[in-house]
Amino acid sequence: SEEEIREAFRVFDKDGNGYISAADLRHVMTNLGEKLTDEEVDEMIREADIDGDGQVNYEDFVQMMTA
């Protein structure tokens, strides 16, 4: 549901600035027990970053979650 997606976005957007940065993503993945290299984190950001601004905004996140 849209509310679940919004809630998930809030979990990833640690600093609440409306964007998921590589640092935000790394933090959440580490908490989930996933040890990722910087390259892996950057690749995840690139794949999710639809508009190419280097971070994942809510619209990018929705597209990723509903793809």
Rank of each mutant, 00 (worst) to 15 (best):
E47H: 15
E7Y: 05
H27W: 14
I20V: 06
A67F: 01
E4L: 09
M65K: 02
S21F: 06
R6D: 01
E47V: 14
G16L: 09
Y19H: 05
D38V: 12
T37K: 06
Q55L: 13
G52F: 09
R26Y: 11
E59P: 03
K35H: 13
A8K: 09
K14E: 07
H27R: 08
I5T: 02
A67S: 12
V11Y: 09
I45K: 02
G18L: 02
F12E: 01
D38Q: 13
I20D: 00
A48K: 06
H27D: 10
V62G: 00
D24M: 04
D13F: 02
R10S: 05
R10T: 05
R10G: 04
I45D: 00
K35V: 09
D15M: 10
A23K: 10
A48E: 03
Q63M: 10
V41T: 03
N31M: 14
F9R: 00
D15S: 07
R10L: 06
N31G: 11
M29H: 01
E34C: 15
R6T: 03
R46Q: 07
D13M: 02
D15E: 11
I5R: 02
T37S: 10
E47D: 13
N57E: 06
D13L: 02
T66Q: 08
D49N: 14
E59Y: 09
D51K: 12
K35Q: 10
N17V: 05
A23R: 08
G16F: 04
D53Y: 09
T30F: 11
E34T: 15
D15N: 11
D15Y: 09
V62Q: 02
D49Y: 14
R46S: 07
Y19V: 04
G33Y: 13
E4R: 13
L25R: 00
V28R: 00
E7D: 08
L25T: 02
I20M: 04
L32R: 04
D60I: 15
D15H: 08
L25D: 01
K35W: 12
A23T: 11
S21A: 09
S1L: 13
E59A: 08
D51V: 09
E47L: 15
D60Q: 15
T30E: 12
A8G: 03
R6W: 06
R26M: 10
G18E: 00
T30W: 10
V56H: 02
R46E: 04
G52R: 13
R6G: 01
L36Q: 02
A23Y: 07
D38C: 08
V41D: 01
A48R: 12
I50T: 13
V56M: 05
N17H: 07
R10V: 04
D51C: 11
Q63D: 05
D49W: 08
E4Q: 12
K14M: 08
D49I: 12
F9T: 00
K35R: 11
A22W: 11
I20F: 02
A22F: 14
A8D: 00
E47Q: 15
F9G: 00
L36D: 01
K35D: 06
D53V: 08
E4H: 10
V28Q: 01
D49C: 12
T66Y: 06
S1N: 09
Y58F: 09
E40H: 06
E39L: 10
E2K: 12
M29K: 01
L25E: 01
E34N: 15
R10W: 03
L32Q: 03
E2T: 09
M64T: 04
V56E: 00
T66F: 14
I5G: 01
E7P: 01
D13R: 00
G18R: 01
N31L: 15
E3L: 08
E7L: 10
V56L: 09
